[in-house]
Simulated assay, not measured.
Amino acid sequence: MTVTFQDIEAAAERIKGHVVRTPCTFSQRLSASTRTKVWIKSENQQYTSAFKERGALNKLLQLSDDERSRGVFAASAGNHAQGLAYHAQRLGIPATIVMPVGTPFVKVQKTQSFGANIVIEGATYDESSAIAQKQCTEKGGVYVHPFNDRDVLIGQGTLVIEMLEDAPELDVILVPIGGGGLIAGAAIAAKAIKPWIKVIGVEAAMFPSFTARRRNMPIPMGGATIAEGIAVREVGDISFNLANPLVDDVLIIDEADFERGIAAYANIEKTIAEGAGAAGLAAVMRFPEKFEGLNVGLILCGGNIDLRLLASVLQRELVREKRLVTYRILGDDRPGMLSLMADVISSKGGNIVDVAHNRLVLDVPAKGAEFDIMVETQDARHAFEISEALRSTGYALRMD
């Protein structure tokens, strides 16, 4: 199977006006913080907040009238489901989406709001995919795979045409990898427009499926990654075969890297990224020496993140930066003890957020007590100053 740049150009013309031509803009603040020249392709500005609309729409627009009447089927717990359901509704095409048991209700509800028939079956994506394909065959529909589909990956490649129109000076493009559809389309377009540009994939350490296939070696897969959008155990055959010759490198990053990327987008760029959407920025922050001084294009591929999870990530980043610190103090269980600690913290400009008072820890003397005092600080240096002031009271201290 072959895909040409002309195929991607045709798709760009086909979907033009039906998806958002999202901006690819230079970020002065992220550039300064990473010592690179960072450009962001903000696909989180699509109507369904993710790039998946491009491939889904390109597929739908090429169906015959007979195929449209028979409807489309897919398996997805996230962005592909919403993108396909939204454009199927616009085009009057019946859509059935099989979603795994345990899919967050908000994602089920949002997909359903686009008129799709939702089937909740299967413990995993793979099980749901098998069920969706079986139903599709039984009902004579058209199966729309989220990544292992020629028309879908061609549609995804259209975003790189826009990127290089807006930022022709790019030296490298960082692409999140799950099943490989995005990087396949992106690499074909990028290398056709600018043959010397570097295309680098980014994978989650829990699901390095592209790397495993490239090295032809078994690598353990699985885990509760925050980058669920790229949590794919097996890269697609079609997408891998098209992408592999064109991808210059693949970087593997950890959960903490994704969290830092999400937090940086929120705190520095003032925009929302889901785990997969933050992959490119996370890789730059993890491996700054690889990109210093280069014009780097990041694909912020989606912004669909649960608000509770986002809040947790931002709080965890405060802990990581020592701007939210818990001081554990072993002291006397007597009146005024907590007041003394509060006075010390206050004198150093710390803001007490929470206090836990524990008398039942067995390694604490019966006449003693353990205090966990969570304090908001300015930075790591300020946190250290507060800890030294607390130690000066003579009581044992541990800082988390």
Rank of each mutant, 00 (worst) to 15 (best):
T2P: 08
T4E: 12
D7L: 08
I15N: 00
I15F: 04
C24H: 03
F26M: 10
S27M: 09
S31K: 06
T34G: 07
K41H: 11
Y47R: 08
S49P: 06
F51C: 06
E53V: 12
R54D: 09
D65R: 15
R68H: 05
S69K: 13
S69W: 08
A74I: 04
A74E: 03
A75K: 00
A81E: 07
A81H: 05
G83L: 06
Y86F: 13
L91N: 07
I93K: 12
I97S: 02
I97G: 01
V98W: 02
G102A: 05
V106W: 10
V106R: 09
I118A: 12
V119R: 08
S128R: 03
A130Y: 06
Q133N: 14
C136D: 03
E138A: 15
E138D: 14
K139N: 15
V142Y: 13
Y143D: 13
L153N: 05
G155H: 02
Q156Y: 10
T158A: 09
T158L: 08
V160R: 03
D171C: 07
V175G: 00
G178R: 02
G179Y: 04
G180H: 00
G180P: 03
A184T: 04
I188Q: 02
A190P: 02
W196I: 12
V199D: 00
V199P: 00
V199R: 02
I200R: 00
A205R: 10
F207Q: 02
S209M: 03
P220M: 14
P220R: 14
P220E: 15
M221C: 10
G223H: 13
G229Y: 07
G229P: 05
A231S: 10
A231Q: 06
V232H: 05
V232I: 15
R233N: 13
E234W: 11
D237H: 13
P245A: 06
D248G: 06
L251K: 04
I252R: 11
D257V: 04
E259Q: 14
R260A: 06
I262Y: 03
A266Y: 07
N267M: 13
I268C: 09
I272V: 13
I272M: 05
E274Y: 08
E274R: 06
G277I: 04
G277W: 00
M285K: 10
K290V: 04
L294W: 03
L294R: 03
G297S: 09
G297E: 02
C301I: 08
G302L: 06
G302W: 01
A311Q: 14
V313G: 00
L318K: 06
V319T: 05
E321C: 12
L324G: 00
V325H: 05
V325E: 05
D333G: 04
D333R: 05
L338Y: 08
S339R: 14
A342R: 03
S346F: 13
S347I: 07
S347W: 09
G350F: 01
I352C: 11
H357M: 14
L360E: 13
P365N: 10
A369H: 01
E370Q: 15
I373K: 07
I373H: 07
M374T: 12
E376L: 09
D379P: 13
A383G: 08
E388Q: 13
R391E: 10
S392D: 15
T393V: 15
T393E: 14
G394L: 10
D400M: 14
